[in-house]
Design a protein around this nucleic acid. Structure first.
Length: 569
RNA sequence: UGGGGCGUCGCCAAGCGGUAAGGCACCGGAUUUUGAUUCCGGCACUCCCAGGUUCGAUCCCUGGCGCCCCAGCCA
C-alpha cells in the first residue's frame, strides 16, 4: 500500500488487515495454484460522491491487493451517460488518493471496452443468444412476470439472426429513437432468478458520453458490462456487495457463452452506520434540498464531508479494519467511528485552550496591569511535542459550564466559595458573582488567587479536584467554532416501517455555530487543515474553506469522552 | 407463496467436531494540573428454536422461526 504524504500531516502507515472470509478464499486460491497473483478492483459509478460505505469497499479491495502484493484497479463504471458526469471522476479519484490508496497505472473506464462489448454482443446474436426486442419498457415489465409467476416470451424473441444483426447495427447507427428497442439476452423467461429472464443488454440512448462523446447511440447495461470488464482486466477476485449475488449467474452466463476468462465474484455485506444514511439517492436529496450545505458538509458521511469534519484517512482506514468484513446485514455503531478518530487524534493533535461559551472571571487580588506567561505542554504524554507560552492576566474567560451558582451533586468545578485550578496558572477561589439585573444570569465571576500555587501546583499538598481551561481576556482572540453532532436523531432513520419518514428524523441540533469563542493567541496563526484538541472539549479541524488568515474557523470533529456529561452531569 | 442470502454478548466479529478470540459499548478500580489519555479488572456454562448423528456439535443432518435482497431500457 502506498500512503502518499499529501502535506496534511498524515502519518505513513503500513498494515495488513486481519484475516476474513475473503482473504481465506484468496489463501486457498493461491495455495491451490488457481491464481498466482491477486488483482482486485474498485468500480465506482461517476454519478456522486464517495461515502464511508465506499471506503469500506476501497479498504477491502486495495487492502487485499496490497496484502498479497497484487494490484487494485480503479475503474469507473460509466455505462449510463444520462446520469454520469466528469466532475465526479476527479472528486472520486481525489478521495481514493486522500484515503491513502494508489491505483498506479491502472485507471480504467468501462467505456474503454464499449467496442469490445459491442462485438461480443454481435457474437451472442450470431449464436442465437441475444435478440432485439421491440416491446416497450412497460410491456417488458409485464412480460417479465412476478417473483412467483414465470414471465412470458416476447413475440420478437424468435427473430432471425440476420434480422437481429441488422436491427442491432441500425440501433448503433442511431436509426431508432430512444427507448424504441433493446437488445436482450435470450436466457429463460421462467427462471426463478429474475435476472435471468432475458435481461436487457443494450438500450438506445442518444446521449453524449463524457468519455466517448457522440460515438455511441446505444449503451450497455451495467449487468452486461461489468462481468466482461472484470474479465478483460484479468480481475482474480471481483468483490462486491451482497445485492449482486443474484446477478452472479448472469455474469457467469455471459462469460461462458463468450468463452472468456471468468473472475471469481465474492460478495460482502455493505456498511450501515447508525444515525446516518448511506444511499446516494438520500445523500443527493439532502444536498439538493439544502438540509446540508453540500456534499462536503461536515455532517455528511461522504469522504469529502468527513475530511472537512477533520477525520483523518488513518482513522477511516482503522475504522474499516475494526468493523471487519462479513456477510451479515449489520448496523455499525457510530461510537466505533468516533472512537477511531479519537484514538488517532489523541496521539497527534496538539492541545490548546479555547473557551466556547465565555464567562468573565475577574481575579480581584491580581494586579490590574500584570501579565504572566505560563508554560503549557502541547501534549501531556508527549514531551517531545514541546510546549508554548500562554499569557495570563487579571480578567480571564472560562467556560460557562464550569461555573454553577448552585452546584449539582458531584460537580467539582467552580461555585461560590469553591476552589478550582486554572490549568497551568493558579488555584482560584470564587468570592462573588455579578448578575444581569434583568435576567438574573451570572455574567461575571469574582475570584481571588493563591500566589503560592503558581503554575497550578499545590505546595501545601492540598487536593484540587477540578481543573478548568481559560483564556486571558486581553490576549485572547475571537474565533468561530462549529459544533457538529449526528445528522439524525434515531439510529436507523426511516428504518421503522410504521415510524416517521427518514427526513423527519433529521437532527435540528446537528450543527451549532458559535461566533464568540475566545482562544489562546497562538491560534491566530492556526493553519487551515490543522488539527487541535481543545482541552476538555474535543478535537477540532481548521476549516479550509471558511478560515482566513488570522481568523480561523474550527470544526469540531468529535468530542472528548465525557463521563461527567454521560452520568447526567 | 418463487429464487438468493443471513442468524455467535447491547453493536460489530473470530471460530470450520474437542468443550466460546478481539474491538466498540457498558460497569468497577488505580494513576492523572484535560471528569481526557493510560492502566488493571468485570462483562455469552452459551452460539435463533426444536429434534437427530456423535464419546463429544456454535460447527454435521432434519424441521421450524426470524431478518435482508431480487419484478430499472439504474448501478
Amino acid at each position: 500500500m502506498t500512503v502518499p504524504n499529501l502535506g496534511t500531516g498524515e502519518r505513513n502507515e503500513s498494515s495488513t488487515p486481519p484475516p476474513n472470509f475473503i482473504s481465506t478464499i484468496i489463501d486457498e486460491d493461491l495455495q491451490s495454484g488457481k491464481h498466482k497473483t491477486v488483482i482486485t478492483r474498485f468500480p465506482p459509478e461517476p454519478n456522486g460522491y464517495l461515502h464511508i460505505g465506499h471506503a469500506k469497499s476501497i479498504c477491502i479491495n486495495f487492502g487485499l491487493a496490497s496484502a498479497y502484493n497484487g494490484r487494485c484497479h480503479l475503474r469507473f463504471d460509466d455505462t449510463n451517460p444520462t446520469k454520469e458526469e466528469t466532475e465526479y471522476v476527479e472528486t472520486i479519484k481525489e478521495s481514493v488518493r486522500w484515503l491513502g490508496f494508489d491505483w498506479g497505472e491502472h485507471l480504467y473506464y468501462a467505456s474503454d471496452y464499449f467496442e469490445q462489448l459491442y462485438h461480443w454482443a454481435e457474437e451472442l446474436i450470431q449464436k442465437g443468444k441475444a435478440y432485439v426486442d421491440d416491446l416497450t419498457a412497460d410491456q417488458i415489465r409485464e412480460y417479465r412476470g412476478t417473483l412467483t409467476e414465470p414471465g412470458k416470451e416476447s413475440p420478437y424473441r424468435q427473430r432471425s439472426t440476420e434480422e437481429n444483426l441488422d436491427l442491432f447495427r441500425r440501433m448503433r447507427a442511431g436509426e431508432f429513437p430512444d427507448g424504441s428497442r433493446v437488445l436482450r439476452a435470450k436466457i429463460d423467461m421462467a427462471s426463478p432468478n429474475m435476472n435471468l429472464r432475458d435481461p436487457v443488454m443494450y438500450r438506445i440512448l442518444h446521449a453524449t458520453h463524457p468519455h466517448t462523446g457522440d460515438d455511441w447511440n446505444i449503451y450497455p447495461m451495467y449487468d452486461y458490462a461489468h462481468g466482461q470488464s472484470d474479465s478483460i482486466e484479468g480481475i482474480t477476485h471481483s468483490i462486491c456487495t451482497l445485492e449482486f449475488e443474484d446477478h452472479r449467474p448472469l455474469y457467469e452466463w455471459f462469460i461462458e457463452q463468450l468463452g472468456i476468462y471468468r473472475p471469481q465474484q465474492i460478495e460482502f455485506a455493505r456498511l450501515n452506520l447508525t444515525y446516518s444514511v448511506m444511499s446516494k439517492r438520500k445523500l443527493l436529496e439532502l444536498v439538493k434540498e439544502g438540509n446540508v450545505s453540500g456534499w462536503d458538509d461536515p455532517r455528511m458521511p461522504t469522504l469529502v464531508g468527513m475530511r472537512r469534519r477533520g477525520y483523518t484517512p488513518e482513522s477511516i482506514r482503522n475504522f474499516c479494519e475494526r468493523i471487519g468484513v462479513g456477510r451479515n446485514d449489520s448496523w455499525i455503531d457510530m461510537s466505533i467511528l468516533e472512537e477511531s478518530v479519537r484514538e488517532d487524534l489523541n496521539e497527534r493533535a496538539p492541545r490548546v485552550m479555547g473557551v466556547l461559551r465565555p464567562l468573565r472571571l475577574v481575579i480581584d487580588n491580581y494586579p490590574e496591569q500584570m501579565t504572566e506567561e505560563f508554560d503549557a505542554a502541547n501534549h501531556p504524554n508527549k514531551p517531545e511535542m514541546g510546549s508554548r507560552k500562554v499569557p495570563f492576566s487579571r480578567v480571564v474567560y472560562i467556560e460557562k459550564d464550569d461555573f454553577m451558582e448552585e452546584p449539582a451533586k458531584g460537580y467539582f468545578r467552580l461555585a461560590p466559595g469553591r476552589e478550582v485550578r486554572l490549568r497551568y496558572a493558579y488555584i482560584v477561589q470564587c468570592v462573588g458573582v455579578v448578575k444581569d439585573e434583568n435576567t438574573g444570569e451570572v455574567v461575571e465571576v469574582h475570584c481571588t488567587y493563591d500566589p503560592e500555587t503558581r503554575g497550578g501546583s499545590t505546595p501545601d499538598g492540598r487536593k484540587i479536584k477540578g481543573t478548568i481551561h481559560w483564556v486571558s481576556a486581553r490576549h485572547s482572540i475571537q474565533a468561530e467554532v462549529r459544533l457538529y453532532d449526528r445528522l439524525f436523531t434515531v439510529p436507523n432513520p426511516g428504518g421503522d416501517r410504521n415510524g416517521p419518514d427518514w427526513k423527519s428524523c433529521l437532527n435540528p441540533a446537528s450543527i451549532e455555530r458559535i461566533g464568540s469563542c475566545r482562544m489562546e493567541p497562538c491560534l491566530a496563526s492556526a493553519e487551515p487543515e490543522s488539527r487541535y484538541q481543545f482541552e476538555r472539549q474535543g478535537y477540532f479541524y481548521v476549516d479550509p474553506s471558511d478560515s482566513s488568515p488570522g481568523a480561523p474557523v474550527f470544526n469540531r470533529t468529535v468530542t472528548l469522552r465525557d463521563s461527567w456529561a454521560k452520568s447526567g452531569g
